[in-house]
Amino acid sequence: MSIAAPRYGGAPVARTGRIYRLLTIFHRELLRRFGLGTMLVVALTYLAVTLILTINIEFASLTGTLSLSTFETPYASPAWPFLMLIVATSVGAGSIAEDVGNRSITLYLSRPIRRVDYLAAKASATGTWMVIVAVGPGLAGLAVALALGWAPASLVLSGAGAFVATGLLASVFFTGLALALSSLTTRSLYAGVATFGVVLSLEIGGPLVSGLTGNTSVAYASPITDILSVAQSAFGISGPYATDPLTSAALLAFAGAFLVIFAGWRISRVEVVGE
């Protein structure tokens, strides 16, 4: 084994900027989450959404009923948002909790990066995965329909806008939720269960409380209901909506942003304690 200390002669090496360092963590985190389970859920989502979308587009095209609202079919049930939830749990729940739990976060925090950069990289990686699963499948379905000549380009463009808008809102919310819960614990399992549990209890509890109390505004507490309302509105469906789409969109965006800020606050206070 060699014992010679490395020699770094010559002129001082120019260092890259903050964004580059942040991107390094982002890139590593993105690759880290390429698990078999996650990939299966993502593949299933693409397959299901593309199939549902193209079949409906072809049918509407044949019957002459093709419109923007035809593209809403993947959002006709909570199935897609639930698949997003599974991916958020899979990629986001361990994002911070694992690093803090096994204290490997020390390897990053002892470097010249700010804690907010660390969080931004983690949020970007989780957010990217969410965009892949929340925006990508709709665009893929539209691309197939366009390639097969089943839908005109102008309509596909409008549909793409609606998929992007709805998918981004869902991505922001799920990213924020997964990161916030991940920052609260040192075990990714707990964060994952909490992420799933929070959404499920809001999904089940919201309508239940709403029905019992007659207070319809409780429905806003259910993120999946909010996503579906936004989708219906974005794809030009005239209603009635379970919640006001604009309010739901604002709530999803605000909640997502707030939860990311909360995770940032937690990260700024993280102290890595020994065994």
């Binding site: 260092r15 096994n102 204290r103 490997s104 020390t106 390897l107 925090l109 002892s110 470097r111 010249p112 990066i113 700010r114 804690r115 020994g274 065994e275």
Partner: peptide, 14 residues
């Protein structure tokens, strides 16, 4: 986490 951290190398126990 200032820039001075690049002047420090840390080998943690864990």
């Amino acid at each position: 986490q200032g820039e001075f951290r690049r002047r420090v190398g840390y080998c943690p126990e864990q």
